[in-house]
C-alpha cells in the first residue's frame, strides 16, 4: 500500500529567495490586496502586508508555504486570514462605552478609528466613515453601499442611475479611493 507523499514546504531561506523573484506587478498586487483587506482590521494595508510576510517567515501559527503553491497566492491567503480574524475579533469585543453607537464627526483618518486605550476599533464607525469618504461622489458611494450590502450591479445602478461607462468609472474611483485611504500609513 502506498502512503501519500508528505507535502513539501519552503524553508525560510527558500521562502526569502522566492520573495526575491516576485515581479514588480506581483509585489504591487499583493500590496493593493492588503489595502483592500485592511478596512476594519485596525491596520493599514502596508502593515497588514508586512504582518503577513512576518508570520510566513516566522512560521507563526504553523504557516508554511507549500512548495506547490505560488508565493503570491500563499501570502494572499495569509492576509485574508489575518484580516478576517481581526475584524471578527473587533466585532466580538463587548463595548463598555455607553455612547458606543455614536459616530462623532472629525476623526482624523477613517482607517484609524482606533481607541488606543482599549485597543478597540468600532466597525460601525468605520462603515460610517467610509460612506463619508464618498460624500461628494454619489456614484462611487452607491458602489460602496451596494458592495457592502451584496447588491447586484443592476441594483446598484437602480440606486444611482449610471450607464456602463459611468459604472466602470465609478467602480474605479471607489477602488482607488479605498486603496489610497487604507494603503500607506499616513497621507501622502
Amino acid at each position: 500500500m502506498h502512503r501519500p507523499a508528505e507535502r513539501a514546504y519552503l524553508d525560510t531561506t527558500a521562502f526569502i529567495a522566492a520573495l526575491g523573484t516576485l515581479t514588480d506587478a506581483d509585489r504591487i498586487r499583493l500590496r493593493y490586496r492588503a489595502a483592500s483587506l485592511a478596512p476594519g482590521t485596525g491596520m493599514q494595508g502596508d502593515d497588514l502586508f508586512q504582518e503577513a510576510v512576518r508570520r510566513a517567515l516566522e512560521r507563526e501559527d504553523g504557516r508554511r508555504c507549500p512548495c506547490d503553491v505560488p508565493v503570491p497566492a500563499f501570502l494572499s491567503n495569509v492576509m485574508r486570514s489575518i484580516a478576517s480574524a481581526e475584524r471578527e475579533k473587533y466585532a466580538r469585543q463587548v463595548s463598555l462605552d455607553p455612547n458606543d453607537n455614536d459616530c462623532p464627526a472629525g476623526d482624523p483618518h477613517p482607517s484609524h478609528v482606533l481607541d488606543s486605550a482599549n485597543a478597540r476599533i468600532d466597525l460601525q464607525r468605520i462603515v460610517a466613515r467610509l460612506e463619508e469618504l464618498f460624500a461628494d461622489d454619489p456614484q462611487a458611494q452607491a458602489v460602496l453601499i451596494g458592495t457592502m450590502e451584496n447588491w447586484t450591479p443592476v441594483e446598484i445602478r437602480d440606486l444611482e442611475p449610471m450607464d456602463d461607462l459611468q459604472y466602470a468609472a465609478a467602480r474605479r474611483r471607489f477602488r482607488r479611493a479605498i486603496l489610497n485611504e487604507f494603503g500607506k500609513d499616513g497621507k501622502k
Partner: peptide
C-alpha cells in the same frame, strides 16, 4: 457590530 463586520467582509 456583526452587521458592520459582514459589510466590511463583503467590501
Amino acid at each position: 457590530k456583526g452587521s458592520a463586520c459582514r459589510q466590511l467582509n463583503r467590501l
